[in-house]
Design a protein around this nucleic acid. Structure first.
Lengths: 150, 150
DNA sequence: CTGCATGCAAAATGTTTGCACTCTA
DNA sequence: TAGAGTGCAAACATTTTGCATGCAG
């Protein structure tokens, strides 16, 4: 839990079709569940086992390559972050696309708030949800019914 | 999702032992899982079915009486918030106790950040985790191994 | 008496694990 | 050929649902 960005000798996929799993998450820029990724791979003709998808997803998350979090209905979702640095996300409630944002002030505030009350080893979680401009316009495009967490 | 603090004709427990469920969550001031609450009620001699606990917990969450969120390992956790207003939490990673905090500036920042990029219908999630002063001192008290989300 | 709430048990979901098989080095 | 990686299916944990019973109005 306390190890972040640990660059082990085996940084990323390590296996061939593990790469397929990563590719799906990486390219979609959205929250994906294991089942989701598995389905997509199957559809794409890739013969990958569900268990394997789970295994790789966990692995990637452990290595900090992707981000894991829980959806409101209990599924574990994964997303790929463009930057390795600490940052937060602005997520579209409709299409699930997330934009990375930085907020030094808020980081500072969070740290101060906790420290002031005597808390140590402080971390935080910040996510902003909204409807993005693209989804706002009614007839722009077919929007998936993906439910973002939170 | 868009209805907050809706005061329906049946605001809270509605039934007698539903109140028992609420009581547990309310009094513990910590994250509790359904299984958890159920176990506590059983131990306390209360004869309550697991399904009933689940049903009441969901009901209470729907009515905004308690707050629901997902733990890192996929369980749904519930907590009672002292205030009905929008606020955030400073949570102890050790004992799970949460302190309610307000942060007008951050609210503003979140709103602006999203609005500036054309997002509408904006909401956000902010949680700060740390080790509280009490838990920091080694031999102070027996700390449960509860795992806070995030 | 009628109806909702309850409790048990079965069912459904999402995830993990055991084990035999395959592919690569 | 040895070993890691894979896939299937069984095992698991949590949550939901169906249905008969109990209590209140």
């Amino acid at each position: 839990m306390a190890d972040r960005a640990r660059r082990l000798p085996r940084p990323v996929p390590a296996t061939r079709q593990g790469a397929a799993v990563l590719a799906v998450v990486q390219r979609s820029g959205t929250f994906r569940s294991a089942q989701d990724v598995h389905a997509e791979l199957r559809t794409a003709g890739q013969r990958v086992g569900l268990a394997t998808v789970y295994r790789h997803l966990q692995l990637l998350a452990e290595n900090g390559v992707i981000d894991a979090l829980q959806s409101a209905d209990g599924q574990t979702l994964y997303r790929h972050c463009a930057s390795d640095d600490h940052h937060h996300h602005l997520i579209c409630r409709q299409c699930g696309t997330s934009v990375e944002i930085e907020a030094p002030d808020v980081e500072q505030w969070a740290a101060n708030t906790a420290t002031r009350r005597g808390y140590t080893d402080v971390t935080h979680t910040i996510e902003i949800f909204g409807v993005c401009p693209a989804c706002r316009k009614p007839a722009s495009r077919a929007q998936r019914h993906r439910t973002p967490p939170g």
